[in-house]
């Protein structure tokens, strides 16, 4: 009966080599026993064979039962550890990729676009391969057994005091806020790196005809790493908000420290004699926006001369308000 052999083959080929012969022999005996019972002494027909095999069911399912119902690749015993390790790996990869981008951009801000492209490329390649390798590791660990969840020491004894606090909605930081902040600072970094010449008074004569820049273009290259560093510190502040997720006194202290550092850095930078465009007033006159000696000229030049002070005062006040605001939020009950 060829069909019987085909059935046995279909079952055993999905089983480990070492068990195939034994199981095949046993199945053959079983099928013959079942046929004998069905035929009750008369000759066995093709129909009998078919009915017996139908009773035994799909060979795939039978093979799976022999293998022990393994229709998963990472079993329940290892699954919790798998999720935990995956989170750790993903965090590490994310930190690595972001840090590479930030450090490269600080060292070599001129090619920030290249670094950004590298950043995207490494995100697309590194993340899936990290997921893949982690999963493969666990699949192998599960397949070859031996590794038990208890051995991995991840499941520390649980205590009721481990329960996380219910988030306090009043002190909670909305995730959108720091994310918007980070995007703003990244855009600012890119703006200062590529298009600082557009940062100035825009001239329109019928249509756009040029810019009188606020910044000193000759020294801008020297200041750029400084600007990026300051904005980088601000990004760090937003990241801290994201990580903490709610206003705590610790976070308030960090915010205050970051604000103080960035205020000092900005002050140091913009009070330097070479930061602003030294020919700003002359260029305004040349472009014909105002004429020298007019009343408007006096006003604008006064504003221009005092702008540094005003910017600093404004910045100091807003950073101070930022700190006060966070103190108030952290005190809310």
């Amino acid at each position: 009966m060829e069909m019987i052999e085909r059935y046995i083959y279909a079952v055993t080929q999905k089983l480990p080599q070492s068990q195939r012969e034994d199981i095949a022999e046993e199945l053959r005996g079983l099928i013959e026993d079942m046929l004998d019972e069905r035929a009750e002494g008369r000759d066995i027909t093709y129909r009998d064979v078919e009915e017996v095999l139908l009773e035994l069911g799909n060979p795939k399912h039978l093979a799976r039962r022999y293998r022990g119902d393994r229709n998963y690749i990472i079993g329940p015993e290892l699954f919790d550890s798998y999720v935990l390790v995956m989170k750790i790996v993903m965090t590490a990869v994310a930190i690595g990729i972001i840090a590479t981008f930030v450090i490269k951009s600080i060292i070599d801000p001129i090619s920030i676009l290249d670094h950004f492209v590298e950043f995207i490329v490494s995100s697309v390649t590194a993340v899936p391969s990290a997921i893949g390798w982690t999963t493969l590791g666990f699949v192998l660990a599960d397949y070859f057994g031996g590794v038990k969840a208890e051995d991995m020491q991840f499941d520390k004894k649980w205590k009721p005091s481990d329960l996380p606090a219910i988030p306090d909605t009043k002190r909670q930081i909305k995730r959108a806020d720091p994310i918007a902040g980070i995007i703003f600072y990244v855009v600012a970094i890119m703006f200062f790196s590529f298009s600082n010449e557009f940062f100035g008074v825009w001239l329109f004569r019928d249509n756009f005809s040029g810019v009188v820049p606020f910044l000193n273009e000759e020294t801008h290259g020297n200041y750029l790493p400084f600007i990026i560093l300051i904005l980088g510190i601000c990004i760090l502040k937003e990241c801290l908000k994201l990580v903490y997720g709610k206003w705590t006194s610790k976070l308030v202290v960090y915010t205050a420290a970051v604000n103080l550092v960035s205020l000092a850095a900005v002050m140091l930078m913009i009070t330097g004699s070479e930061f602003w465009n030294p020919n700003f007033m002359n260029e305004l006159v040349e472009s014909g926006v105002i004429s020298e000696g007019s009343e408007a000229f006096g006003t604008v030049s006064k504003i221009w001369e005092h702008s540094t002070t005003w910017i600093l005062i404004f910045l100091a006040l807003s950073l101070l308000w930022d700190v006060i605001d966070s103190i108030i939020r952290s005190r809310k009950k």
């Binding site: 068990q19 199981i23 046993e26 199945l27 069911g57 399912h61 039978l62 039962r65 022999y66």
Partner: peptide, 12 residues
């Protein structure tokens, strides 16, 4: 008991 259940069980 179906043989398809019993045989793998015996082996296990």
């Amino acid at each position: 008991v179906e043989p398809g259940t019993l045989y793998p069980l015996l082996r296990r």
